[in-house]
Amino acid sequence: MAFWDTPRHGGNSFNRLPPDQAYFDALRGYGATWVRLSYDKWQPAGRDFLLGDADAYQGLPAADLATLRTALDRAHQAGLKVVIAPLSLPGMRWSQNNQGPFDDRLWQDKRYWVQAAAFWRDMARELKAHPAIAAYNLINEPAPEKHGGLAEHADARQMQQWYAQARGSARDLPALYQQLIAAIREQDAVTPVMVDAGWYAAADAFDYWPAPLDDQRVLYSVHMYEPYTVTSASNMKRKRPIAYPGPAPFAGQIQQWDGQRVAQYLGQPLDWAETMKVPRERLVVAEFGCMRRLPGCRQYLEDVLGVLEHNRLHWAFYSFREDSWDGMDYELGSAKVPWRYWQAIEQGAPDPLSRKASAEFEPIRKRLNPE
Rank of each mutant, 00 (worst) to 15 (best):
A2R: 15
P7V: 09
G10Y: 07
R16I: 12
L17N: 13
P19Y: 11
D20S: 13
A22L: 12
A26K: 08
G29Y: 13
S38D: 10
K41F: 15
P44V: 02
L50N: 00
G52H: 11
A54C: 07
D64P: 13
H76K: 06
H76T: 01
A85I: 08
L89V: 00
S95L: 10
N97K: 14
N98H: 14
R105D: 03
D109V: 02
W113A: 01
V114Y: 03
M123K: 00
A129S: 05
A129G: 04
A132H: 01
A132F: 07
I133N: 02
I139G: 01
I139Y: 04
K146Q: 14
G149Q: 07
L150D: 03
E152T: 09
M159T: 10
A166V: 09
A166Y: 12
S169C: 10
D172H: 15
P174N: 06
L176T: 09
Q179G: 04
L180S: 08
Q187W: 11
Q187I: 08
Y200V: 07
D204N: 12
F206H: 09
D207Y: 10
A211V: 05
Q216S: 11
R217Q: 11
V222C: 10
T229H: 08
S232E: 03
S234W: 13
R240V: 08
P241K: 00
G246Q: 03
P247D: 06
P249C: 00
I254L: 11
Y265W: 14
P269M: 08
D271H: 09
V278T: 05
L283D: 06
A286K: 06
M291N: 09
L294G: 07
R298G: 04
E302L: 04
E302Q: 13
V304T: 07
L308Q: 03
L313M: 07
F320M: 06
D323Q: 03
D326Q: 11
G327P: 01
G327T: 05
E331W: 15
A335W: 07
A335R: 14
K336C: 07
K336L: 14
V337N: 03
Q343I: 01
A344T: 05
I345Y: 11
Q347E: 15
Q347S: 11
G348R: 09
G348V: 09
A349I: 04
D351I: 03
L353I: 10
A359W: 13
E362V: 06
K366R: 15
R367S: 08
E371R: 10
